[in-house]
Amino acid sequence: MNPHDDLRPAAAPASGTDPLTLVVGVHLVLTDADRVLLGRRRNTAYANGLWHLPAGHMERGEPVTRSMAREAEEELSLTIAEHDLALVHTLHHLDADDGRSRLQLFFRPTRYHGRLRNAEPHKCEELHWWPLDSLPDDTVPYTAHALTEITRGNTLSTVGWAA
């Protein structure tokens, strides 16, 4: 037996057992005392007009921490070192609109630099600080769910799956 046999890729899985490809979303949980920063989405294909955390998707070839730091810079003009991001919640979300499985990662920065501003007004109508215990009714549902779970100290939850 060759000692490197266990390092070779396994044979292709049988049809129907291919590994799942997940969409990975990254979300910034920026808080000030008992308030959280939300933006009202504008001109977007998903959740247009609803309140949502600053967020985006992981791009090919970048780790999730780089994705989050990049989104914070693009959307808020904030510089966050990757090692200053704490993962505070993971949400496995089955999207009812398109049936896709999504992994939503929620990060809280331990520190950041820069002056907070709406750097993408074409995608975000406004930014507003909301009390964590009184989010607007028109918050993206999975966002409201995740913030509730974070407030409760839960680090993992699922949404959209059959009970």
Rank of each mutant, 00 (worst) to 15 (best):
A12L: 13
A14D: 13
S15I: 11
S15Q: 12
T17M: 13
D18W: 10
G25C: 10
V26K: 00
H27I: 01
D34I: 02
L38I: 07
N48K: 03
N48C: 07
N48P: 08
W51D: 02
W51R: 02
H52A: 14
G61D: 04
R70E: 09
R70G: 03
E71C: 06
E73C: 12
T79P: 12
I80S: 03
E82P: 14
L85S: 01
V88A: 06
H89N: 07
H92G: 09
H93E: 10
L94S: 05
D95N: 09
D98S: 04
L105K: 04
F106Q: 03
P109K: 03
T110K: 07
G114E: 10
R115I: 15
R115T: 15
L116I: 14
R117V: 15
A119Q: 07
K123V: 10
K123W: 10
C124R: 07
E125S: 07
E125V: 03
E126T: 13
E126W: 06
L127V: 01
H128T: 15
P131N: 04
L132W: 00
D133T: 00
D138I: 00
A144S: 05
A144Q: 01
T148Y: 05
I150V: 08
I150H: 02
L156I: 13
V159M: 13
A162C: 10
